[in-house]
């Protein structure tokens, strides 16, 4: 059973709230301060991705974030209702080769979004213990960090 479960409407404004909750629970679970910055970023990426998936697939459904504090580890699971298709796509950034000529109408039509799957690539770069699984109901991004066992003798 998760320590804390947060369910939020798939709106970008709530991603910050999810980050703050994850950070607070992780800190209490004994995750090292040095790791909290990357945890905040990784949780933000996972929730942003979920919000984007929901907004295009099922905006009425809530995104779920489960935070689980086990003895010596802390797990964040972000669950969306979308397929994995963008999760498996390798990011393909071609910036150098894509320098635009000044004569086109391209500047206005350029997408600002990095390729789908980019957020997951960032997570993979940040978090050692991460798994992404998908079934008919959606995609689970599960990230685990080491934590101090605050109940163990001698940990204080």
């Amino acid at each position: 059973m998760p320590t804390v479960e947060v369910s939020f409407t798939a709106l970008p404004a709530h991603v910050r709230t999810a980050r703050l909750v994850a950070l607070a629970v992780a800190r209490r679970a004994g995750v090292d301060e040095q790791i909290l910055d990357e945890l905040r970023l990784a949780v933000g990426e996972a929730c942003s991705r979920a919000v984007n998936v929901h907004q295009s697939k099922s905006p009425a459904d809530a995104v779920v974030m489960r935070l689980t504090d086990e003895q010596d580890r802390f797990t964040v699971e972000v669950i969306d209702c979308g397929p994995l298709e963008d999760a498996v796509a390798e990011p393909d950034i071609d910036l150098e080769g894509n320098a635009l000529s000044a004569d086109g109408d391209t500047a206005e039509s350029l997408p600002d979004l990095l390729p789908p799957g980019f957020g997951l690539a960032v997570i993979s770069g940040l978090v050692e213990d991460v798994s992404v699984t998908s079934d008919v109901d959606g995609t689970h991004v599960r990230m685990t960090w080491p934590a101090v066992d605050v109940l163990a003798p001698g940990s204080h």
């Binding site: 990426e45 950034i93 600002d112 979004l113």
Partner: peptide, 10 residues
């Protein structure tokens, strides 16, 4: 985050 990076790239 990566959304912000995307804006800078844009």
């Amino acid at each position: 985050d990566s959304t912000g990076l995307g804006v800078l790239v844009g």
